[in-house]
């Protein structure tokens, strides 16, 4: 496969997964575990795509772009890292070394396109003031296309321009640095999980985090079993809390309704 064909396929896959994610309800098609296998399949090495997609998913798990704050673009890093890994024959060593730096670059690009597309804000306001619903819609889809087309072009150019230098760069790295990058691959998910902990943490529930950790570290349960244990505990505690809530709400109602004993009796009977 020529580099140009490979670059075209990567750009197309990226457009479908990343653009499609935002066109169709944030369906998470831009997550590494989805885009990785697709890139692998298109470049003729599905197995590498699957395995690297899974490891990069761990690396990027905490890249949560909540409320428009962008720092990392996981799909950008994943697409290029896996493409270079397969095209250069360097495998996971290459992918893990460059995925996060590329993800950061992708994040910058995303900020850039968000600013660029903001210039259409006035056009939308004008269309609304004219009562022109059709124009609002065509801008809605037009700006979508423009934004993700820019991304696809950048991916295309990056695959063509980057293949040789990336291979050279990775091969020229001293062993200690290469080993260091492998160490980073193991440590970086910590930042991601920290980011996610920030969303769900509460001091009262922190013991459940420890429980999940111990289930895997000492009992060596697979993650699907951990998820099942989690569901069971969530349902148990949820039902218990619901019961407490009903009791307290009920007693509140009782105290407010002391002046109307009739309705209280009805409550009791029903």
């Amino acid at each position: 496969m020529s580099t140009v064909t490979a670059a075209l396929l990567c750009a197309l896959a990226y457009f479908i997964c990343f653009g499609g994610n935002w066109l169709i309800g944030q369906n998470m098609a831009d997550q590494p575990i989805v885009i990785g296998p697709l890139i692998g399949f298109l470049l003729g090495d599905l197995h590498t795509g699957l395995v690297l997609g899974a490891s990069l998913q761990a690396l990027f798990i905490g890249a949560v772009n909540v409320g428009g704050a962008v720092s990392l673009n996981p799909s950008f890093g994943t697409t290029l890292a896996i493409a270079f890994a397969i095209l250069s024959g360097g495998g996971s060593k290459v992918a893990l070394a460059i995925a996060v730096p590329l993800g950061l670059l992708g994040g910058l690009l995303e900020v850039g396109t968000n600013i660029l597309c903001a210039f259409f804000g006035d056009a939308w306001d004008k269309a609304a003031a004219e009562g022109n619903g059709k124009k609002i819609i065509s801008l809605h889809y037009g700006v979508w296309f423009l934004k993700y087309f820019i991304f696809a072009v950048v991916i295309f150019a990056a695959v063509i321009a980057g293949k040789e230098p990336v291979t050279l760069f990775v091969n020229s790295l001293p062993d200690a640095i290469q080993n260091g990058l492998a160490v980073c691959g193991g440590l970086l998910p910590a930042v991601g999980f920290a980011m996610l902990l920030k969303m769900v943490w509460s001091n009262k529930l922190a013991v459940f985090y420890l429980l999940g950790f111990v289930l895997v570290a000492y009992l060596e349960l697979p993650l699907i079993a951990v998820a099942a244990v989690g569901v069971v505990l969530a349902v148990i505690t949820g039902l218990y809390d619901k019961q407490l809530l009903d009791i307290s709400n009920h007693s509140n109602r009782m105290t407010t309704k002391t002046e109307t004993p009739l309705s209280e009796e009805e409550d009791f009977l029903s």
Partner: peptide
Amino acid sequence: STLGLIMLGGMTS
């Protein structure tokens, strides 16, 4: 959050 924390604990490990 209970489910989330258990899962995050397992995945951290």
